[in-house]
């Protein structure tokens, strides 16, 4: 059986689409977060650490209170706190934002693993805790529709939240006052400052929103995608988010498409047995795609700049001719 036939087999399997949509969620959320941060002119590289801390504290809060929603709120609160911490170090103490991200990731992965052992005595995963999962939503009526029903019904409530956040964040970014300020600060902070818009405050709002999205992603990882926290479970998704944002030109809708691209290959790699291609090679595809995407994006930006320069020079030369004739 050729690879193509196997691929067709996988693509005609309704369960694949369910996996596809759920693997996309923990990429989409941090990607949206990075997109917001990029819009204000800051690179939030700390999503790995935020996701890990949120996933961990979510599980702990859920297990100790017996209420998974408390766990969710704890994860969101962690996102909020991390957003404030990142803002404090990056904006007030003026640490390079990339280094803040690296430090946050160190602290996040270290603290979550350290405290996991303290709280549970486990070294790799909190399987001994009864932390539960957030509700999965069955869609009666729709459930029976082939493909669509299988793919949509039974997804976690946070999956719905994640996909709904795409229009919500688009609205925030393009239709609200805060969004206008975020984009202004990102594009020309001096312009914003000169009319009394506080650059630091706006950046802080954006970084907090960004980090809260990372917190929700953490909650999804440990309370939906898997029913427990495991060491390093973010698995580099925070870094993928940076790439996905860059390829999406920092728009929420674009982030959805690039996240789906990564999610697709992730899902495909779980089906690689049927594909007859080594799973690891399938997993390399999104990273390869990113490299190519980055280059395409960079070439486009360069081309645009060159055209603008040429037009400028052209206009200037013409203007001079005109002036010479007039004189």
């Amino acid at each position: 059986m050729s690879v193509l036939e196997a691929l067709a087999g996988i693509l005609s399997n309704p369960n694949f689409y369910f996996t596809f949509l759920s693997t996309t969620v923990p990429i989409l959320l941090p990607t949206l977060g990075c997109a917001i941060a990029e819009n204000v002119g800051s690179t939030n590289m700390g999503q790995e650490g935020i996701m890990l801390l949120a996933a961990f504290f979510g599980v702990i809060a859920s297990a100790y209170t017996g209420n998974v929603w408390v766990g969710f709120l704890a994860a969101v609160a962690i996102g909020l706190l991390m957003g404030l911490a990142i803002s404090y170090f990056a904006l007030y103490l003026q640490v390079d934002i990339i280094l803040v991200g690296i430090a946050v990731n160190l602290v996040g992965s270290g603290l979550s693993a350290f405290l996991m052992y303290v709280f549970t005595g486990d070294r790799s995963a909190t399987t001994s805790l009864q932390s539960g999962t957030l509700p999965f939503i069955d869609l009666p009526g729709i459930k029976e529709i082939p493909y669509i029903g299988t793919a949509l019904s039974g997804q976690s409530v946070l999956a719905w939240v994640a996909y709904l956040l795409v229009p919500v964040l688009s609205f925030l970014l393009y239709k609200t006052r805060l969004g206008l300020r975020i984009r202004s600060v990102g594009e020309n902070p001096h312009a914003a400052e000169s009319v009394g818009v506080s650059v630091n405050k706006t950046k802080m709002y954006a970084l907090v929103i960004s980090s809260v999205l990372g917190g929700i992603a953490g909650a999804y990882l440990s309370m939906s995608y898997l029913p427990y926290f495991s060491k390093g479970m973010s698995g580099g998704r925070g870094y993928i988010a940076l790439a996905a944002t860059a390829m999406a030109n920092n728009t929420p809708v674009g982030s959805l498409w690039t996240s789906l691209l990564f999610g697709f290959f992730y899902a495909l790699s779980t089906y690689s047995g049927a594909l007859g291609v080594p799973a690891q090679l399938v997993t390399t595809l999104p990273y390869l795609a990113t490299l190519v995407g980055l280059v395409v994006f960079a070439i486009r930006v360069q081309g645009k700049e060159r055209r603008r320069r040429q037009e400028g020079a052209h206009a200037a030369a013409e203007g001079d001719d005109g002036a010479a004739r007039a004189a």
Binding site: R177, L180, R183, E187, N188, H190, A191, A192, S194, V195
Partner: peptide
């Protein structure tokens, strides 16, 4: 040196900081 945000509209630039909501 102009203090303007290039990708925004004239109206958005003019009202930035005193945005009507």
């Amino acid at each position: 040196h102009f203090m303007l945000v290039p990708s925004l509209t004239v109206a958005e630039n003019v009202t930035l900081g005193i945005e009507p909501t």
